[in-house]
Design a protein around this nucleic acid. Structure first.
Lengths: 190, 190
DNA sequence: GTCTATACAATGATAGAC
DNA sequence: GTCTATCATTGTATAGAC
């Protein structure tokens, strides 16, 4: 990573979110975003694969965080414990000062089907990363898949709660609550 | 639906899959597809929202099949039974004569990230439909979500098996096997 | 190695005629 | 319901400047 111009990406992200919020996602062109950041269209596409990707900047490391956490978990942890640990660690990145930004982001995503599709893809990528990490620890594919789905689901429900709540609970607490609810549902299953 | 030109969509689908298989997805333009079917580009877009959607024609009713099956299940069925019933009913649409087409389709999807994203979106839509249908029957949200994820996962693993196997097992049988494996994994979870 | 300038193919939308 | 026609935008490629 070069030291100069290291704020190019954040500037593009900020310009994009501002414009999307003000005029809507589809009504905003990539050229507009680039010029609002004092750059040009080709530069935008050098930093982001496509127009959608700019709204998911900062999530690049999420899969790695999950993989690392599972790999570093104690030797005697169960599948569910390892999976829970992974999403708990991920939750730490969702600090209170990032809540407003995430709320605005969710509002933009809600209005554009293209963005919802990308968001679902990101969720699936996280579930895959978690499942693979669990499988790499020796848990069977069926168990790994189920534990991954269950934990990622709890995480996203917590994320939704976090966005709609008024800040009385941290993301970590909400993840814990939703994981508990999931385990209860699991027991009621059979 | 008009009686004339009722084969327009199938013709477009066939032309698309043929061209994608021959030259690749990205190397084939919508104009090419339309002209190969004796039509024009705007006509293509009247039938399919975008270039990707043409490869998922025929899946429009899948969500409805799942919803209907769950709604029609016996009053004393458990969550897992209702969910299993739904994917089993869906499996009936994957008859042996459609296997070759699905194999070609999977090959095209495998080469284009855009298509994989759309495929994942379709899977998520099925999981949502199943979860909603289960919730509508009074099963709690946690149980409904887990049962939906688990059953859809088993379905897709069965689909993958169905494509790679050489026809000795039907899609229904493969779904049954994967559902059984999932239930075993579920018991090993706690 | 990062950005600009320019040109380009293709997607996807739109308006109007048959 | 399809066609012609036109259009803005996405996303890529090539050149070169700093």
């Amino acid at each position: 990573m070069p030291r100069w111009n290291t704020d190019t990406r954040p500037r593009l992200v900020q310009a994009a979110v501002d414009l999307f919020t003000a005029q809507g996602y589809e009504a905003t062109s990539v050229t507009e975003i680039a010029e609002a950041a004092g750059l040009t269209k080709p530069t935008f596409f050098r930093h982001f694969r496509d127009k959608r990707e700019v709204l998911f900047a900062g999530q690049e490391q999420h899969a790695q965080i999950i993989a690392d956490t599972v790999a570093d978990a104690g030797a005697d942890t169960t599948v569910l414990e390892a999976a829970a640990c992974a999403v708990q660690t991920l939750a730490e990145r969702f600090t209170e000062d990032r809540r407003d930004f995430n709320v605005r982001l969710a509002q933009v995503v809600a209005e554009a089907p293209d963005l919802q599709e990308r968001a679902i893809y990101k969720r699936a990528a996280l579930a895959d990363a978690l499942r693979d990490a669990l499988a790499a620890r020796g848990f069977g594919p069926a168990r790994a898949g189920i534990a991954a789905d269950l934990s990622i689901r709890a995480f996203y429900e917590a994320y939704s709660d976090w966005l709609t709540s008024t800040g009385e609970a941290s993301m970590g607490e909400l993840v814990t609550r939703n994981l508990t609810a999931a385990r209860t549902g699991l027991n009621d299953l059979a």
